[in-house]
Design a protein around this nucleic acid. Sequence first.
DNA 1: CTGAAAGCGCTTACAG
DNA 2: CTGAAAGCGCTTACAG
Lengths: 364, 364
Amino acid sequence: MKSSRTRLKDVAAKLNLSPALVSGVLNNRPHIWASEETCARILEVAQELNYYPSAAAQALSRGKTDLIVFVYKRLPEAAYRLAYSGLMDALSSELQGAGYDLTVANFATQEEVMAHLQKLASSRGCDAIVLWGREEDTEPQAKLLEALNIPFVVKGRHEVVHPHWYQVDFDHESMMAQCYQRLVALGHQRIAYLGFESDDGFVQCLKSGFLNSRSRHPVEAEESPLFFAEFGDEFEPNICKIREWLHLSPKSRPTGFVIGAGNKAWQALEVGLAEVGRKLTNKPGGFSASGITSSPFNLMFGEADVYQEIEIDKLARFVIPALVRSLNHESGDERIVRFLPKLSQARTLAINVKKSLQEGEATI
Amino acid sequence: MKSSRTRLKDVAAKLNLSPALVSGVLNNRPHIWASEETCARILEVAQELNYYPSAAAQALSRGKTDLIVFVYKRLPEAAYRLAYSGLMDALSSELQGAGYDLTVANFATQEEVMAHLQKLASSRGCDAIVLWGREEDTEPQAKLLEALNIPFVVKGRHEVVHPHWYQVDFDHESMMAQCYQRLVALGHQRIAYLGFESDDGFVQCLKSGFLNSRSRHPVEAEESPLFFAEFGDEFEPNICKIREWLHLSPKSRPTGFVIGAGNKAWQALEVGLAEVGRKLTNKPGGFSASGITSSPFNLMFGEADVYQEIEIDKLARFVIPALVRSLNHESGDERIVRFLPKLSQARTLAINVKKSLQEGEATI
DNA sequence: CTGAAAGCGCTTACAG
DNA sequence: CTGAAAGCGCTTACAG
């Protein structure tokens, strides 16, 4: 009982109407004339016969696939994979709402990505493309799409070199500024920065966000040293640096920490503090931190205001409007979307193994 | 300079050949005759003109879209979202290798999913479908696809009611059995189980895997109590139960833990042990645990052999072969794939705040 | 062994 | 206001 799908002419035949009329009504094309009643009957029969137009035939005749392709180069680091978690949920659901389907294509190498983009363009396999990944990868990809004259949106910070590209990303500078302000408001005088060691665009923006805040703000005496460190997403180098900082004298060690790095940095910070009998707090007078996190995130011992995982989904939701603008070749500054999330309190396990761990009872 | 894409007849014209011949050679159809040299020239010109066949035209004339759709109902719990992390990477890359593109469609409600499946089938929008999610959701979805006679593979444990479905999942029973054996090998006599509180198929399989191992294995005296608890993915209920167990006398409390739950259970276990000055170890004589984890996973204090995050990707790789079998309507037992991962050592922060935390120095 | 022709299932000017 | 016809770009029997 192979159910041969219903075609347009089947529903037209059943109604004794021409396929053209039925097509016109079903797509409610303007300037199509059919009585109210005929329209109703057409809808009814279409539903009754379970008619859905052939996607391929429509794509061929309309020259439009209603397909958006999400393209990226696979990154080996688990941290990046996790950053994509929830992205498909958000993108697919937004696109469905806009009448598009989402196709996903990822490749191990940049060459494969470029070849696929070329193929997509030449085979008219989609209406538009979303590029995701590091700037060093997405930049040549976007250039190719630009040359091929195919609409696209790219995730990333390309405003300096390519201000005319449709692009979406966080406002990393302001995020770090918010964190810095938060710590200043808590009364911290010496505020350290833990970042990533990377040329990635967002990393540089995080860094300059911190440095600009610091130089603009008067709390740190100009001659006070700059507590600044960048590492890969690993525990060891972070903990070493933190130990070094924490072993400075109480008058000279940093008490506030802006984190422009991943969960390993947070873990190192908490462990480092625990080693000296302290934990993070949101109250004045202790050690405090604020910054970005990867998902899932929770503190072990203390408390802190951070940017939580869910933000990447929110970011994804800006992609679709940008895509629509791109498809319509709308111009203007709204080609560049920069999203500033809000700080919120991190969940914590509030582990309290020994009394000596409690705030204020430094033991070393 | 809108680059109008090259069509088949363009390359045919340039070669003074008929489109039919060119098409035949490009698709290297059997029984097509063209001299070696002609073939070479065709390939050459196609490449030179950057020719890729129109996806829509091919789909229409061949009745095949080369599209696989990955369909699921969105689940609100972050834990589930994370379980999908890496899935797209694995699925897309496998499919690209098999000549298919991956399309993703997710919806908030079951009704929307069902409607989309109906539409996909009727619009011939894809060649096959991958269903992912909980059995209670995927079962009616799969039934619909079966009725619509469209090839599919479903993630899940449907072997009892639907042994003829193409399905892929972990061998949860054997996983729990492996964990149990591991603890027995370490000399544990009283082995507890921490699971999820859920009707999900995999949860039931984990549970029966543990219970069967236990009943088959002679180490536990038949009258020894069953240490067994199931909770949602939350910290509090787990820690309460663990405290209760750990406060039993050394002769009667459990020393081994099989974890059929998420990271919250692990955190609770580690915190509970830390509260009594202990941590997990892989050596005989202490407290040990083994089980499943969500990604990313690391222990805070101790060590343990666990199933790591990456397994979900490995699982995904079994989907494509199953899909191909499904497309060819191959029969046999290989419709059901059950994957048994290997235990491996979890990363640990090895936090060691106070000496009293060290193994063997119980303090309470 | 080759090329002209029909067909896939829609859409959309274009004549009635 | 309507319907017959051509066209989207391929593929594939089918006659030469």
